[in-house]
Protein backbone atom coordinates (compact mmCIF):
# COMPACT_ATOMS: atom_id res chain seq x y z
CA UNK A 1 0.00 0.00 0.00
CA UNK A 2 1.33 3.48 -0.79
CA UNK A 3 2.21 5.73 2.11
CA UNK A 4 -0.22 8.57 2.76
CA UNK A 5 1.02 11.92 1.57
CA UNK A 6 0.58 15.42 2.92
CA UNK A 7 -1.54 16.51 0.03
CA UNK A 8 -4.01 13.68 0.35
CA UNK A 9 -6.73 16.13 1.19
CA UNK A 10 -6.93 17.32 -2.38
CA UNK A 11 -7.68 14.83 -5.09
CA UNK A 12 -5.66 14.71 -8.24
CA UNK A 13 -7.14 16.43 -11.23
CA UNK A 14 -7.30 14.05 -14.12
CA UNK A 15 -7.36 14.62 -17.82
CA UNK A 16 -8.82 11.56 -19.47
CA UNK A 17 -8.58 11.10 -23.21
CA UNK A 18 -10.92 8.46 -24.55
CA UNK A 19 -10.21 7.04 -27.98
CA UNK A 20 -13.31 5.22 -29.07
CA UNK A 21 -13.48 3.31 -32.30
CA UNK A 22 -16.39 4.54 -34.40
CA UNK A 23 -15.21 3.29 -37.76
CA UNK A 24 -18.40 2.32 -39.60
CA UNK A 25 -16.57 -0.44 -41.45
CA UNK A 26 -15.75 -2.13 -38.18
CA UNK A 27 -19.19 -1.87 -36.77
CA UNK A 28 -21.24 -2.83 -39.81
CA UNK A 29 -19.79 -6.33 -39.97
CA UNK A 30 -20.03 -8.97 -37.32
CA UNK A 31 -16.72 -10.49 -38.37
CA UNK A 32 -14.08 -10.84 -35.65
CA UNK A 33 -16.43 -9.86 -32.89
CA UNK A 34 -17.19 -13.28 -31.53
CA UNK A 35 -20.01 -14.28 -29.24
CA UNK A 36 -20.80 -12.30 -26.16
CA UNK A 37 -18.03 -9.72 -26.50
CA UNK A 38 -18.83 -6.03 -26.00
CA UNK A 39 -18.25 -5.45 -29.70
CA UNK A 40 -20.93 -7.94 -30.64
CA UNK A 41 -23.49 -5.74 -28.94
CA UNK A 42 -22.90 -2.88 -31.31
CA UNK A 43 -21.56 0.63 -31.25
CA UNK A 44 -24.55 2.13 -29.47
CA UNK A 45 -24.08 -0.07 -26.43
CA UNK A 46 -20.37 0.77 -26.31
CA UNK A 47 -21.14 4.48 -26.65
CA UNK A 48 -23.80 4.23 -23.95
CA UNK A 49 -21.32 2.63 -21.57
CA UNK A 50 -18.70 5.23 -22.46
CA UNK A 51 -21.00 8.16 -21.77
CA UNK A 52 -22.19 6.75 -18.48
CA UNK A 53 -18.60 6.11 -17.60
CA UNK A 54 -17.67 9.71 -18.47
CA UNK A 55 -20.45 11.06 -16.26
CA UNK A 56 -19.17 8.97 -13.38
CA UNK A 57 -15.70 10.25 -14.07
CA UNK A 58 -16.90 13.87 -13.99
CA UNK A 59 -18.87 13.29 -10.82
CA UNK A 60 -15.75 12.12 -9.01
CA UNK A 61 -14.04 15.46 -9.21
CA UNK A 62 -15.34 18.83 -10.33
CA UNK A 63 -12.07 19.58 -12.04
CA UNK A 64 -11.80 16.41 -14.02
CA UNK A 65 -11.40 17.02 -17.72
CA UNK A 66 -12.15 14.66 -20.56
CA UNK A 67 -11.56 14.54 -24.27
CA UNK A 68 -13.28 12.08 -26.58
CA UNK A 69 -11.71 11.26 -29.92
CA UNK A 70 -13.52 9.27 -32.56
CA UNK A 71 -11.23 6.83 -34.34
CA UNK A 72 -12.98 6.82 -37.66
CA UNK A 73 -12.24 5.18 -40.96
CA UNK A 74 -10.80 8.26 -42.60
CA UNK A 75 -8.98 9.71 -39.65
CA UNK A 76 -9.49 10.88 -36.10
CA UNK A 77 -11.87 13.56 -34.98
CA UNK A 78 -12.35 15.30 -31.68
CA UNK A 79 -15.89 14.64 -30.49
CA UNK A 80 -15.82 16.43 -27.19
CA UNK A 81 -13.27 18.48 -25.28
CA UNK A 82 -13.71 19.86 -21.80
CA UNK A 83 -12.73 23.49 -21.52
CA UNK A 84 -9.05 23.51 -20.61
CA UNK A 85 -9.03 26.92 -18.97
CA UNK A 86 -7.36 26.93 -15.61
CA UNK A 87 -9.81 27.92 -12.90
CA UNK A 88 -9.36 31.42 -11.61
CA UNK A 89 -11.14 33.27 -8.86
CA UNK A 90 -11.60 36.31 -11.04
CA UNK A 91 -14.67 34.93 -12.75
CA UNK A 92 -16.85 36.81 -10.38
CA UNK A 93 -19.32 35.28 -7.97
CA UNK A 94 -22.28 35.99 -10.19
CA UNK A 95 -20.99 33.93 -13.06
CA UNK A 96 -20.11 31.20 -10.62
CA UNK A 97 -23.59 31.26 -9.09
CA UNK A 98 -25.20 31.21 -12.50
CA UNK A 99 -23.21 28.16 -13.42
CA UNK A 100 -24.15 26.32 -10.30
CA UNK A 101 -27.81 27.26 -10.66
CA UNK A 102 -27.81 25.28 -13.90
CA UNK A 103 -26.29 22.25 -12.30
CA UNK A 104 -27.72 19.02 -13.64
CA UNK A 105 -27.59 15.85 -11.63
CA UNK A 106 -24.54 16.82 -9.61
CA UNK A 107 -22.52 17.72 -12.67
CA UNK A 108 -21.14 21.02 -13.74
CA UNK A 109 -23.28 22.12 -16.71
CA UNK A 110 -20.19 22.18 -18.89
CA UNK A 111 -19.55 18.59 -17.99
CA UNK A 112 -23.09 17.36 -18.37
CA UNK A 113 -23.01 18.46 -22.01
CA UNK A 114 -20.50 15.74 -22.81
CA UNK A 115 -22.94 12.99 -23.75
CA UNK A 116 -25.20 14.99 -26.07
CA UNK A 117 -22.17 16.66 -27.68
CA UNK A 118 -20.55 13.33 -28.42
CA UNK A 119 -23.68 11.95 -30.03
CA UNK A 120 -24.33 15.10 -32.02
CA UNK A 121 -20.77 15.32 -33.38
CA UNK A 122 -20.79 11.66 -34.24
CA UNK A 123 -24.03 12.15 -36.13
CA UNK A 124 -22.45 15.01 -38.07
CA UNK A 125 -19.45 12.84 -38.88
CA UNK A 126 -21.59 10.04 -40.21
CA UNK A 127 -23.72 12.44 -42.22
CA UNK A 128 -20.59 13.91 -43.81
CA UNK A 129 -19.31 10.45 -44.54
CA UNK A 130 -22.45 9.12 -46.17
CA UNK A 131 -22.64 12.35 -48.17
CA UNK A 132 -19.14 11.93 -49.53
CA UNK A 133 -19.33 8.20 -50.08
CA UNK A 134 -22.63 8.31 -51.96
CA UNK A 135 -20.57 8.62 -55.13
CA UNK A 136 -17.97 6.19 -53.93
CA UNK A 137 -20.20 3.19 -53.48
CA UNK A 138 -17.90 1.18 -55.67
CA UNK A 139 -14.94 1.94 -53.48
CA UNK A 140 -16.82 0.86 -50.39
CA UNK A 141 -17.45 -2.44 -52.01
CA UNK A 142 -13.80 -2.88 -52.84
CA UNK A 143 -12.89 -1.93 -49.29
CA UNK A 144 -15.09 -4.49 -47.74
CA UNK A 145 -13.37 -7.24 -49.69
CA UNK A 146 -10.00 -7.04 -48.07
CA UNK A 147 -9.67 -8.72 -44.73
CA UNK A 148 -10.89 -7.46 -41.41
CA UNK A 149 -11.46 -3.74 -40.95
CA UNK A 150 -8.88 -1.78 -38.98
CA UNK A 151 -8.79 1.72 -37.58
CA UNK A 152 -6.01 4.26 -37.25
CA UNK A 153 -5.25 3.97 -33.55
CA UNK A 154 -1.65 5.10 -34.00
CA UNK A 155 -2.84 8.44 -35.31
CA UNK A 156 -5.41 8.69 -32.54
CA UNK A 157 -2.77 8.08 -29.89
CA UNK A 158 -0.53 10.69 -31.48
CA UNK A 159 -3.38 13.18 -31.46
CA UNK A 160 -4.11 12.42 -27.81
CA UNK A 161 -0.47 12.91 -26.89
CA UNK A 162 -0.37 16.28 -28.62
CA UNK A 163 -3.40 17.31 -26.63
CA UNK A 164 -1.83 16.07 -23.39
CA UNK A 165 1.29 18.01 -24.21
CA UNK A 166 -0.69 21.21 -24.56
CA UNK A 167 -2.74 20.57 -21.43
CA UNK A 168 0.37 19.86 -19.41
CA UNK A 169 2.08 23.00 -20.65
CA UNK A 170 -0.98 25.06 -19.69
CA UNK A 171 -1.26 23.57 -16.25
CA UNK A 172 2.43 23.75 -15.52
CA UNK A 173 2.33 27.44 -16.35
CA UNK A 174 -0.47 27.81 -13.80
CA UNK A 175 1.47 25.81 -11.24
CA UNK A 176 -0.94 22.90 -11.13
CA UNK A 177 -0.25 19.23 -11.29
CA UNK A 178 -1.97 17.53 -14.13
CA UNK A 179 -2.30 13.81 -14.55
CA UNK A 180 -3.33 12.87 -18.05
CA UNK A 181 -4.17 9.36 -19.08
CA UNK A 182 -5.48 7.70 -22.21
CA UNK A 183 -8.18 5.10 -22.59
CA UNK A 184 -8.48 3.16 -25.84
CA UNK A 185 -11.62 1.27 -26.79
CA UNK A 186 -10.64 -0.86 -29.74
CA UNK A 187 -13.03 -3.21 -31.48
CA UNK A 188 -11.10 -4.03 -34.65
CA UNK A 189 -7.82 -5.83 -35.03
CA UNK A 190 -4.42 -4.19 -35.26
CA UNK A 191 -3.16 -3.00 -38.58
CA UNK A 192 0.46 -4.21 -38.86
CA UNK A 193 1.41 -1.29 -41.12
CA UNK A 194 0.82 0.94 -38.12
CA UNK A 195 3.63 -0.73 -36.23
CA UNK A 196 6.17 2.11 -36.40
CA UNK A 197 3.84 5.04 -35.66
CA UNK A 198 2.26 2.98 -32.92
CA UNK A 199 5.60 2.28 -31.29
CA UNK A 200 6.66 5.91 -31.59
CA UNK A 201 3.46 6.98 -29.88
CA UNK A 202 3.88 4.40 -27.13
CA UNK A 203 7.42 5.50 -26.36
CA UNK A 204 6.35 9.10 -26.34
CA UNK A 205 3.59 8.28 -23.85
CA UNK A 206 6.10 6.43 -21.74
CA UNK A 207 8.44 9.41 -21.67
CA UNK A 208 5.62 11.71 -20.65
CA UNK A 209 4.55 9.06 -18.12
CA UNK A 210 1.03 8.91 -19.46
CA UNK A 211 -0.52 5.48 -18.88
CA UNK A 212 -2.48 3.99 -21.74
CA UNK A 213 -5.39 1.80 -20.69
CA UNK A 214 -6.63 -0.46 -23.42
CA UNK A 215 -9.88 -2.35 -23.83
CA UNK A 216 -10.01 -4.94 -26.56
CA UNK A 217 -13.72 -5.14 -27.29
CA UNK A 218 -13.58 -7.70 -30.05
CA UNK A 219 -12.80 -11.37 -30.16
CA UNK A 220 -9.07 -11.05 -30.75
CA UNK A 221 -6.35 -9.74 -28.52
CA UNK A 222 -4.60 -6.65 -29.71
CA UNK A 223 -0.81 -7.08 -29.45
CA UNK A 224 -0.19 -3.37 -30.03
CA UNK A 225 -2.49 -2.39 -27.21
CA UNK A 226 -0.98 -5.05 -24.98
CA UNK A 227 2.42 -3.56 -25.57
CA UNK A 228 1.10 -0.04 -25.08
CA UNK A 229 -0.39 -0.94 -21.72
CA UNK A 230 2.67 -2.93 -20.71
CA UNK A 231 5.20 -0.24 -21.61
CA UNK A 232 3.25 2.71 -20.20
CA UNK A 233 2.09 0.78 -17.12
CA UNK A 234 -1.56 1.01 -17.97
CA UNK A 235 -4.13 -1.75 -17.80
CA UNK A 236 -5.04 -4.07 -20.64
CA UNK A 237 -8.52 -5.51 -20.37
CA UNK A 238 -10.33 -7.90 -22.65
CA UNK A 239 -13.87 -8.07 -21.32
CA UNK A 240 -15.39 -11.49 -21.54
CA UNK A 241 -18.93 -10.44 -20.69
CA UNK A 242 -20.33 -8.16 -23.35
CA UNK A 243 -23.01 -6.51 -21.26
CA UNK A 244 -20.56 -5.80 -18.44
CA UNK A 245 -18.48 -3.25 -20.32
CA UNK A 246 -19.57 -0.39 -18.08
CA UNK A 247 -18.58 -2.36 -15.02
CA UNK A 248 -15.14 -3.11 -16.45
CA UNK A 249 -14.69 0.57 -17.27
CA UNK A 250 -15.80 1.77 -13.86
CA UNK A 251 -13.64 -0.65 -11.96
CA UNK A 252 -10.52 -0.08 -14.04
CA UNK A 253 -10.34 3.34 -15.58
CA UNK A 254 -12.43 5.76 -13.57
CA UNK A 255 -10.10 6.32 -10.63
CA UNK A 256 -7.33 8.89 -10.72
CA UNK A 257 -3.79 7.60 -10.90
CA UNK A 258 -3.13 8.02 -7.22
CA UNK A 259 -6.18 6.04 -6.15
CA UNK A 260 -5.33 3.45 -8.71
CA UNK A 261 -2.43 2.28 -6.60
CA UNK A 262 -5.01 0.92 -4.15
CA UNK A 263 -6.85 -1.10 -6.79
CA UNK A 264 -6.06 -4.55 -7.97
CA UNK A 265 -6.12 -4.06 -11.70
CA UNK A 266 -6.64 -6.95 -14.07
CA UNK A 267 -3.29 -8.64 -14.53
CA UNK A 268 -2.01 -9.00 -18.04
CA UNK A 269 -1.97 -12.66 -18.91
CA UNK A 270 0.83 -12.17 -21.35
CA UNK A 271 2.19 -9.75 -23.85
CA UNK A 272 2.76 -10.49 -27.48
CA UNK A 273 6.11 -8.88 -28.08
CA UNK A 274 6.47 -9.90 -31.68
CA UNK A 275 7.59 -7.25 -34.08
CA UNK A 276 6.08 -6.69 -37.49
CA UNK A 277 7.72 -7.99 -40.61
CA UNK A 278 8.49 -5.08 -42.86
CA UNK A 279 7.90 -6.94 -46.06
CA UNK A 280 4.75 -8.83 -45.27
CA UNK A 281 3.34 -6.86 -42.40
CA UNK A 282 2.87 -9.99 -40.38
CA UNK A 283 4.12 -10.57 -36.90
CA UNK A 284 7.57 -12.11 -36.68
CA UNK A 285 9.05 -13.88 -33.71
CA UNK A 286 12.50 -14.85 -34.92
CA UNK A 287 14.46 -12.57 -37.15
CA UNK A 288 17.87 -11.89 -38.49
CA UNK A 289 19.25 -8.53 -37.83
CA UNK A 290 21.45 -7.30 -40.60
CA UNK A 291 23.81 -4.67 -39.44
CA UNK A 292 24.41 -1.83 -41.88
CA UNK A 293 21.00 -2.30 -43.44
CA UNK A 294 17.71 -0.66 -42.69
CA UNK A 295 16.14 -1.69 -39.48
CA UNK A 296 13.63 -4.08 -40.85
CA UNK A 297 11.89 -7.12 -39.70
CA UNK A 298 11.14 -9.80 -42.21
CA UNK A 299 9.25 -12.74 -40.97
CA UNK A 300 9.85 -16.43 -41.35
CA UNK A 301 8.13 -16.84 -44.66
CA UNK A 302 10.12 -14.12 -46.33
CA UNK A 303 11.65 -15.36 -49.48
CA UNK A 304 15.36 -15.44 -50.11
CA UNK A 305 14.86 -12.93 -52.85
CA UNK A 306 13.80 -10.34 -50.30
CA UNK A 307 16.74 -10.97 -48.11
CA UNK A 308 19.14 -10.73 -51.01
CA UNK A 309 17.45 -7.60 -52.18
CA UNK A 310 17.92 -5.96 -48.83
CA UNK A 311 21.51 -7.00 -48.57
CA UNK A 312 22.42 -5.90 -52.05
CA UNK A 313 20.83 -2.51 -51.75
CA UNK A 314 21.70 -1.18 -48.36
CA UNK A 315 19.92 1.95 -47.36
CA UNK A 316 20.95 4.54 -44.89
CA UNK A 317 20.93 2.45 -41.84
CA UNK A 318 22.49 -0.35 -40.01
CA UNK A 319 20.16 -2.68 -38.33
CA UNK A 320 17.84 -4.98 -40.13
CA UNK A 321 15.85 -7.89 -39.04
CA UNK A 322 15.19 -10.54 -41.60
CA UNK A 323 13.99 -14.00 -41.52
CA UNK A 324 16.38 -16.81 -40.73
CA UNK A 325 14.64 -19.55 -42.66
CA UNK A 326 16.41 -18.66 -45.87
CA UNK A 327 19.41 -20.93 -45.88
CA UNK A 328 20.86 -19.38 -49.01
CA UNK A 329 22.39 -16.57 -47.06
CA UNK A 330 23.72 -18.92 -44.39
CA UNK A 331 22.88 -17.16 -41.18
CA UNK A 332 25.38 -17.62 -38.39
CA UNK A 333 24.60 -20.77 -36.51
CA UNK A 334 24.17 -20.57 -32.80
CA UNK A 335 27.27 -21.87 -31.02
CA UNK A 336 25.45 -24.43 -28.95
CA UNK A 337 22.54 -26.61 -29.99
CA UNK A 338 20.00 -27.97 -27.59
CA UNK A 339 21.08 -31.47 -26.66
CA UNK A 340 19.38 -34.15 -28.71
CA UNK A 341 17.11 -36.41 -26.82
CA UNK A 342 18.45 -39.89 -26.26
Amino acid sequence: MPEPRDDDVTDDRSLLIVLVETNPRTWETSEGKGEGTPASRGLSSVLGATITFLNAFFALNQQNRAVVVAVHGDGCHYLYTSPLGVETDEDGDEAEDARWANKVGGLDPLQSEAGPTILRRLGELNAAETGSSATGAKRDKADSDDGPATSPFAGALSLALCYCNRAQALENAAGLRSKPRILCLQASQDNPTDYIPMMNAIFSAQRQSIPVDAFALGEHDSPFMQQAAHITRGAYVKPTLGDGLLQYLLSTAVMDLRSRAFLKLPAARGVDFRASCFCHNGPSSVGLRVLRLPLRLLRRSSRVRHVRHHIRRPRRSIIDVIDPSSRAISPPRPPARPPARA
Partner: peptide, 16 residues
Amino acid sequence: ATKSCLVQMGFPQKKH
Protein backbone atom coordinates in the same frame (compact mmCIF):
# COMPACT_ATOMS: atom_id res chain seq x y z
CA ALA B 1 34.40 1.51 -39.92
CA THR B 2 32.01 -1.38 -39.62
CA LYS B 3 31.08 -4.21 -41.91
CA SER B 4 27.77 -5.90 -42.43
CA CYS B 5 26.93 -9.18 -40.89
CA LEU B 6 23.83 -11.02 -39.85
CA VAL B 7 22.80 -11.53 -36.31
CA GLN B 8 20.00 -13.91 -35.58
CA MET B 9 17.68 -12.89 -32.85
CA GLY B 10 14.36 -13.80 -31.35
CA PHE B 11 11.50 -11.78 -29.94
CA PRO B 12 10.19 -13.65 -26.91
CA GLN B 13 6.62 -13.32 -25.77
CA LYS B 14 5.73 -12.67 -22.20
CA LYS B 15 3.64 -15.46 -20.76
CA HIS B 16 2.54 -15.94 -17.27
